[in-house]
């Protein structure tokens, strides 16, 4: 009886979360051991993200951006420093911080609906919360594909299912690891608009890793530029423009030039 009441309370707490959480990265350093040698990847990274912010991480390939995301997700523990979600130290994965990876990594043996339901099923609350799966599929426009299997979907649709699978948990922090990196440019542009719309509607804190300077500027209200490995923060740029943003905006073009310069690519501009 009591257990049931607690389960009920937990379920409701997950159903109606406060909007985005604050994320604090305090003096985080990390390294990998490869063949006995220690390879430093992150060097004293400090970053405070306010609730509901959309932050983009930009940096050269292999600089450790994805590692930082794995630390935020709780999939790995940092060698030094601490990460906190709303003042609570991150010690492991939690459905309030969900990751969307570059590959959709849908489970091929599950239908679209069952893939989207994964988080609720893993937390053991699917039975009472089935409507949330329906709602989130509606949100990403895949209701008519609910019974399809992943191999029947296009790349854009698969990535939308991955997004739905993350959003069904009502995350406080959405972690995006180049989620649009493998899509064709047209699908990419339309999904960027969808992402902004979802973020504005739900209000979760978003942390996006991308290679694409333009994508970062169109989506984020703060762009963090990282150095080559071991990654350090070299710039913290506020993008103070209203949404929806236009790619041809001269203000954004100026920022783009500045950021490409920071990444050592001014010659290509």
């Amino acid at each position: 009886m009591v257990a049931q009441a607690i389960a009920q309370a937990t379920a409701e707490a997950i159903t109606y979360p406060a909007v985005g959480a604050a994320l604090d990265i305090e003096g985080v350093s990390h390294a990998f051991d490869i063949d006995g040698a220690t390879l430093p990847v992150l060097d004293n990274v400090n970053l405070a993200i306010a609730p509901g912010e959309f932050v983009a991480l930009l940096g050269p390939s292999g600089c450790g951006k994805s590692t930082l995301l794995r630390l935020v997700a709780g999939l790995e523990k940092p060698r030094a420093g601490a990460l906190r979600e709303d003042e609570v130290r991150i010690t492991g994965p939690h459905p309030s911080r969900v990751v969307v990876f570059q590959d959709p990594t849908l489970f091929p043996w599950r239908s679209v609906w069952d893939n989207a339901a994964l988080g609720l099923e893993a937390q053991g609350i699917l039975k009472t919360q089935r409507h949330r799966v329906d709602a989130v599929l509606e949100l990403v426009g895949l209701t008519s594909f609910r019974n399809a299997y992943p191999h029947q979907l296009s790349g854009g649709m698969a990535q939308r299912v991955a997004l739905a699978r993350a959003l069904v948990n009502d995350p406080k922090i959405l972690v995006l690891d180049e989620p649009l990196g493998k899509l064709d440019s047209l699908t990419r542009i339309s999904m960027q608009a969808e992402l902004v719309a979802l973020w504005q509607r739900k209000g979760f804190t978003t942390l996006l890793v991308t290679h694409d300077v333009e994508e970062a500027l169109v989506l984020a209200n703060r762009v963090i530029v990282l150095s080559d490995r071991p990654a350090r923060i070299t710039a913290d740029i506020a993008v103070d423009r209203p949404y929806p943003r236009h790619r041809g905006d001269p203000y954004l073009a100026g920022l783009r030039k500045q950021i490409l310069g920071l990444l050592g690519l001014e010659a290509t501009w």
């Binding site: 997700a73 709780g74 999939l75 994965p93 939690h94 459905p95 911080r97 969900v98 990751v99 990876f101 590959d103 990594t105 489970f107 994964l118 988080g119 099923e121 893993a122 937390q123 699978r165 948990n169």
Partner: peptide, 18 residues
């Protein structure tokens, strides 16, 4: 089994039995 599947499931709150 690809470790990416386990990563996905773990971030969604899966326990070892799951």
């Amino acid at each position: 089994v690809s470790s990416a599947y386990y990563d996905v499931a773990r971030t969604l709150g899966a326990k070892p039995s799951f």
